[in-house]
Design a protein around this nucleic acid. Structure first.
Lengths: 209, 209
DNA sequence: TTTTGTGAACGTGTTCACAGCG
DNA sequence: CGCTGTGAACACGTTCACAAAA
């Protein structure tokens, strides 16, 4: 695909860098930072931070650190934060509403442009001034850039297929089921039970004897 | 702490194994499976599955595969699924409600035993027959085994401190902020913006040229 | 001197390949 | 023979340690 392969872990950390840099710059009114400070704030090894940041160009000045101004713009360019992304939420239960409201009120670069559901009781209603539509009618050229699936597992695959048919290239799935997706779709999943199971598993294993 | 260190990744996969084994056993009424079948269903390399499963004892029969019955009980014991875990949810907004209802209706081994909030408008109300209490009054001996923080970042640290003071040993945090926690607390976090940022970052990076 | 940027070392997690057992 | 269980090889991610630059 491209010159250098970058792992998902790097993008995840960049999201943390982005949040941290913004806090230092806008809240604390700082002008510069260094890998040691970021390390302390994020609990990430300073040399890993330097390695990550060096991927977006030689951002730092030796002996000085990083200019927050230029670091911010570098990171924002890398993460695509200079543009607003059109997000569709499919499944307007409590979780869908939580995400909708969260994105609506925290000023992020994500804009909910469409809501869908499978439930005819919900279809036709509005939520936060956005009409809830039948997910069967997701049509091509919707310009959905990211789809968030918050519907039950039983319909998750159908929803994913519809989204992909409409041109969506990235999916965040909260349904606890393995989706069959083409290779070129970017995909992440969040699975509440898996998180809880991981915690209890560790509790059990590391607590006895 | 113990004889062999097991990575979080292993516990995460065991959660997937658990779900998959239950489907094969109870839904498909199968009696046996093998690493190849599990691999196909979960997209995990069969030798990794065998390695994982071998951690809970020699579960399989060479030439045959695994008895779903005994695999199920082995996995459930490993993940602590034989007992019910007392979960408190702190922050009863849409997200807290989503989790509460999800856990209430999907029969899992997690039971919400307490709800807390910081907002006096919500305190005193009930949700799904559970009283919402002031998080300041989380008291010792609550017997909260896991705490789920769905409150805003600004109060997340205070909540974590209260939970830990009451004896909670595991925390799942949805607030996008680094918590300071003692070493002996098991911790996971879910960060919506980080997930979206990771997707957009990959979209940007791998789509141009 | 301070802090970056990065090759090299290290550690962790996954896959290979096959011996061992049913 | 078929499939598990597992050492050995490999791949990937992180940390070390230091030369280079401000």
């Amino acid at each position: 695909m491209k010159e250098k392969n970058i792992s998902e872990l790097v993008f995840e950390r960049f999201s943390l860098y982005h949040r941290c840099i913004n806090k230092l710059f806008h809240q604390d009114n700082k002008e510069i930072t260094d890998s040691k400070e970021l390390s302390r704030l994020l609990n990430i090894d300073p040399s890993l931070i330097r390695r990550d940041l060096s991927m977006i160009g030689k951002m730092g000045k030796r002996g000085m650190g990083y200019s927050l101004q230029s670091l911010k713009s570098g990171v924002e360019e890398f993460l695509g934060k200079e543009k607003s992304w059109a997000v569709a939420v499919v499944g307007i239960g409590n979780l869908g509403k939580a995400i909708l409201r969260y994105l609506a009120y925290s000023h992020s670069n994500y804009t909910i442009t469409a809501l869908f559901d499978t439930d005819s009781d919900k279809i036709g209603k509005e939520y936060e001034n956005i009409l809830i539509r039948n997910f069967e009618h997701i049509h091509p050229n919707e310009n959905i850039e990211m789809g968030v699936i918050t519907a039950p597992s039983s319909v998750a695959q159908k929803i994913a297929d519809k989204l992909i048919a409409s041109g969506t290239k990235a999916i965040l799935n909260f349904a606890p089921i393995k989706l069959n997706l083409p290779e070129n779709i970017f995909y992440r999943e969040i699975d509440l039970i898996r998180e809880l199971d991981t915690l209890t598993g560790m509790l059990c294993y590391y607590s006895k004897d």
